[in-house]
Structure formats: C-alpha cells, structure tokens
Design a protein around this nucleic acid. Sequence first.
DNA 1: AACGTTTTGTGACAGAAATCACGTTAAATT
DNA 2: AATTTAACGTGATTTCTGTCACAAAACGTT
Lengths: 233, 233
Amino acid sequence: MVNQKYKEELSYELGELLKSAERIVPIKKGSYLFKEGQVAKEMYIILSGKVQISKINAEGNELSLRLCKHNDIVGELTLFTVDPRYIFNAKVIENGEAAAINIVDLEQAFFKNSQLAFEFLRWMNDHIRKTITKFRDLVLNGKKGALYSTIIRLCNSYGVLRENGIEISVPLTNQDLANFCGTARESVSRMLTELRKNHIISISKKIITVHDLEYLKKEIDCENCPIEYCNID
Amino acid sequence: MVNQKYKEELSYELGELLKSAERIVPIKKGSYLFKEGQVAKEMYIILSGKVQISKINAEGNELSLRLCKHNDIVGELTLFTVDPRYIFNAKVIENGEAAAINIVDLEQAFFKNSQLAFEFLRWMNDHIRKTITKFRDLVLNGKKGALYSTIIRLCNSYGVLRENGIEISVPLTNQDLANFCGTARESVSRMLTELRKNHIISISKKIITVHDLEYLKKEIDCENCPIEYCNID
DNA sequence: AACGTTTTGTGACAGAAATCACGTTAAATT
DNA sequence: AATTTAACGTGATTTCTGTCACAAAACGTT
C-alpha cells in the first residue's frame, strides 16, 4: 500500500484511484517516466514535480501535448489495449514523485468498483474535451492562434497572480513553446518579441508574465470556456 | 424499451449500452441531431445513416471532427457535466436511425453496472487515442499531411475494395475535405489535382478511389497504427 | 432540353511561416 | 573569472497557404 502523505491533498476521485496504487516512484528532472514504444505496465498519478508528454515524429520534430503536475494522470492511454505500449514520451522537467498504478490491477478494480470506474469516466470525459478544444485552437487560428492559446492555457495551469500580471511559474524556452504549437522556434521568437513590444507580456529568465490576458483571448475568439477545459494538463 | 431489430448487429459493448436506450429517432439528411449550445439530454448511437460532427468558429469556418456511421456514439461529451450542453454540431448527411440514450439514466446505469461502465471506459479510451493521433497529423505535417491523413482515415472507415483500389463510399466535396483539414477549399482542390495527375487517386461523382494508399502513408510517415485508432469515426 | 445552382480548377497575388545564416546574449561548467 | 554551451533575435530568402476572381463543369429541377 502506498505512502499516505499525499492523500489529503488529493481530490476524492484521485484518492479512490490511488487506493489501487502499488508504489511511489521518485522522478528526476531529465529522466523519462516512460518512452514511446515501451511495454506499458503502469499508469501514473503525479504527486509532485512536473512531467511533459510529447511525441516525436519521423523527422525528429517534437510535439508536446501536455505539461502535467500534481494530481494529473499520465500513461492512461495504455489501458484496455491488447498489446499495451506507451505511445508518448513522458519527460520529467521538475523533480518529484509519482504513484504507479498497475494497469492490470486497475482494470480489475474498475470492473469490481463502479464508483471508481465512474470517477475515471468523468476524468476521461473532461480530458477528451480538453484535448479537442486544445487542438481546435492549434488547427483553426494559424500559428499565432496556436501560441496565444498555449500561453492562455499555461496561465490557467501554472499562472500565479502578481501585481503586474499573471506569471507562468514554469521556465520555458522558445523551443518548448514551439513544440507545443507545432511551429518553428524562430516564429515563436518573433511573435514573442512582438507581444513584448506591445506590452502584452514580458519575459525574464524563461519565465513569462502576461500583462494583458484579455488581448490574447480576444485575438483567438476565446469563448471563455471553463478552466477545466482550457489548460495544458 | 428499444426496437430489437438492430441488436444482433451490435457489438457486445454497444448492446449493453443500448439496453439503456429510450427510443429510436429517425434521422434525415440535412437536419441536425443536435446543435452547439443546445441543452443536452441525450447521447446517441447511430444505427444507420451517417452523421458529421463539426464545430463552427467565430469567423464562420467549419472544422469537421468526425464522420460517424452505424455503431458510432455521438453526443458523448455532455456526460458528467454540471450544465450539459452540446459543444458540437451533429449534421445528418445520410438518412437513417439513431438510438437515443438519456444521459441522466446513463450516468446512473454506469454507477450501478460496472460492466457497462467498463465497456464505455474502453470505448472512451480508444476514442481519445484516435482523437490525439488525428490532430497530431493535422498539426505536424502541414496541410498536405492533413489531407493525406484524412484520406487514409476515410479509407479505413468507409473504404470498399475495388479491382482498381479502395473506394471511399461517401460522397465528399472539396469543401467537406477542407473542413476536415482546417484548410482552404482551393488548396484541397490543388492537392487533389496533383494526386490525380500522379495516379494516386481518382474521383468520380464526388467519390474518391485511392489507387496507391502506400504513397499517401509514406508521405506522412504513417506508422501503420491499428485501424481502431486510424479512422474518421 | 433549358435553366439555375453548386462545385470545381486555376491563375495571380498577398500574407504567413519555415528555413538558413549568423551575431549576440544568457546560462552553465570548469 | 574564464570558457564552453545553450538559447535568442533577426535579416534574407524560399516555400507554403490563403484569398480573390472568374470561367468551366457538374448537378439538380422544372
């Protein structure tokens, strides 16, 4: 049974899920929780630290899909498959711990415990909704729309309110942002320069502070959808 | 209780789901099963006919997300939400019938019946995996990649083997294809012209026949993922 | 068959975005 | 502090994609 120290901080649903957890693994910056193609035996709940989910294509371009933190579930897409293999890379970008849940056990737990299955269904539903709205932004509004949408989502997931705006509390290089947008590093650099020039954002030590979130939202016809669907987790 | 005539054709999982169905509704070409923003009371299983799921943005551009047929589930994203509203449009493009499932009843059914919840979880998991791979193709390989990926998926969902190739058994205009790719109609027209010139495809009466699927797959570095994840449903 | 409507193909052009190149700045390491 | 490495900014150029315009073709209807 798993260490109890995180239990209180978890939502009820995750608490239920965590009862199935086998062990806690430490995660170290730079290492991978799992890599594409590996046989999948476990799904993870991030307890602390940060993990980036990404996919690398044949030309070597990396597409980042999620940036996960405390209470996020990763490796969930391997459930219910005949030959379970991870289809993405999970790179640790900040030290922490993750609870590992054996997927065979979990599938059985779902079967026995409809409360658990129900909560996971709810999570899955939110997750797919989030995924679709995220990609819609990437596809429909060009590269500028992709970047602005990414910044808005980062604010919703990692924003800390400061007197001069919202600070995104994760250091991100231009290349990191480019990977989230499916765009070139140089294009991101140019767009960020323009945003700075117009005092929409400012950047210091790879930390972005957004001074005018409304501007970004207006530019991409943001519908102000609920924050549960508009984040980068 | 629902009409029995379709039961035999359904997979086991859908059969289970269908037990919760309340009524069968006829669907007529040109009408909408539901529209974005409407209060959602029902989820549907398509029994026959075809339904296109799409989203229209502020500028009036339409992005098509799915093209659904027999045994596909639509309207599923409204489950488990506090103020359930449809977030997409479901336009009927071929006459048929759909089984309507009350979402409140269904949520209760999931809670009571873990078998049912389990099967639906499996479906959701496949669905999100499919969604991610689809959008990845749209984002990473440019507009040509988006079109080729869409054609490959259409083959997997609606392809009929002919002596000269795979016939996509749904009439599609260039605009329809453009909507699936998030691209301009004229761009699609040009790309299709080029594919025809190179004898990769041919088109007759809005029906595309693919003569060289391998060419399309090679161009977008297709990994030959399982057909369950590479379709347009 | 004649008509109106929708769809298609294509040229011309403009704007967006990727790529290449390279000097500068910032960060990490010794 | 000095040195190496990584990240950034930006001009120049090329490629890709969208937009506009319009004629031709296909389709549906009477």
